[in-house]
Design a protein around this nucleic acid. Structure first.
Lengths: 251, 251
DNA sequence: CTAGTGCACTGGTCTGACCAGTAGGCTGCA
DNA sequence: TGCAGCCTACTGGTCAGACCAGTGCACTAG
């Protein structure tokens, strides 16, 4: 056992070196979002490689969400601000390829949203409470009019809570998982009558959650938010997956 | 309001069409992991494009974790089984670029691990309990000998719990976030004496968690697991981030 | 039957070229 | 003088053809 642990000799492909350098420059702040990379022809001179190699590197950087190029642009590729787009893509792929069920996704949302509420109850500012108030108000006004607007207001509420948790990871994951769930159930919405009833119930639930957050009762806020989400998505989740969701409710 | 909602005309770059087609074939199961793509020269014939275009498409597919190519391989690029590697990368980038703090990461781990324990307490099989037992046993044996082996056993325990939660998303996120945390604190480990004390305490904590899981007491298992992790990482987390962690403890 | 040697193929890289776009300067008209 | 419109010098996207260092397999010589 032990002995020198040799690392496998990694063949260094030229385009990978370029990717590393550019990525490093972005992560270290040498290159900041909005700045432009030199043109491909300049880069091939700077790196002493051919344009194909430069372009392969740029494709990788683009796939990772670091840069974007536009044909005809007299400047080079643009350095992008970080966005969870790449994270979003890989999670979406996961949902498509890796047999991720709606039940698992909703369960994960319940976990995230509950912790966001728990933290928000303890850490929220008055301003954030006002945001949540405003979001519920929007939900009330939209409920009888437009389901899309209701949905948007609902999203705004959950976003406000996520922000109040002061945890970026919770914020971003919430956002990513939510959009996947919404995409999955899009098209198989409940009938119009059911929908109105659902929205009304949902508003009441959100009010209760907000009360708990306002009161600083994290445990209650977490429990209520789980119940809210369970209630809201129950009809979309296949019967055999529901027990797993219920397992998150019994406290 | 309303009116026809025109989508922006997306310029269709040739290599993107190739990426779409191959990705579609993989997601639909036409191409399964382990299978080989035709060689680049075959692909250029099949898609009626030049090799550079084929290669740019392959670079993107590789960056997204779908395929991998090896020089000299008489077969073409290999279709990879899905792995959270891409997810891992984007999250790591997030941690580096987007000022994600250790506190936030540990907090997220506490959330994930707690829910995994909560679910495991209700859904675990006897077999999985045995796995957890075995992992704690390994931790006991390693504690006085090797910190690395202790760590590995610790990981095995948490993995077993995550599997028992029956939620792949929790499993994968746990895995990804853990490795980022471990990387972040690598090198600034506590002193050797402290370490042994820490390991002993950690074992006791894990035993308590396992007892709760075995007893089916999800709420207790969740609370204990949060406390365990808080205790274990406290020293690495800057003082000003600790209140946020404690906010997760008060139930 | 096996050790060793080619050979045909792979991916990685390079060169040089053309095209359709874009932006900004220039020209010429009002 | 002011501005509309053209021109040019760039950009990224694509193509064609070439070379190289590896790899695996078939074939061959012992």
């Amino acid at each position: 056992m032990g002995g020198p642990r040799f690392e496998p000799v990694r063949t260094i492909r030229a385009y990978e070196r370029i990717v590393e350098q550019v990525e490093g420059a972005i992560e270290s702040g040498t290159l900041t979002p909005g700045q432009r990379l030199p043109s491909e022809r300049d880069l091939m001179a700077q790196f002493s490689v051919s344009r194909s190699t430069v372009r392969e590197a740029l494709r990788v950087l683009q796939a990772r969400g670091f840069v974007q190029s536009r044909p005809g642009d007299p400047n080079g590729a643009e350095v992008l601000p970080f966005s969870p787009a790449a994270l979003h893509r890989s999670m979406t792929t996961l949902a498509r390829v890796d047999e991720l069920s709606l039940g698992e996704l909703v369960q994960f949302r319940m976990v995230l949203d509950a912790s966001a509420n728990l933290l928000a109850a303890r850490l929220r500012t008055e301003e954030q409470l006002a945001e949540m108030d405003a979001a519920i108000d929007r939900m009330r006004k939209a409920a009888e009019v437009s389901y899309d607007e209701f949905s948007a207001a609902d999203v705004a509420f959950h976003d406000a809570v996520a922000r109040a948790s002061r945890n970026k990871l919770i914020q971003i994951s919430t956002e990513v998982v939510r959009s996947i769930v919404v995409n999955l159930i899009a098209g198989k919405l409940a009938s119009s009558d059911d929908r109105v009833a659902l929205m009304r119930r949902s508003i009441r639930h959100h009010e209760e959650v907000l009360d708990a957050v306002r009161a600083g009762d994290g445990a209650l806020a977490a429990r209520l938010s789980r119940e809210t989400m369970y209630d809201y998505y129950l009809d979309y989740v296949p019967a055999d997956e529901r027990p797993a969701l219920r397992a998150l409710l019994e406290d």
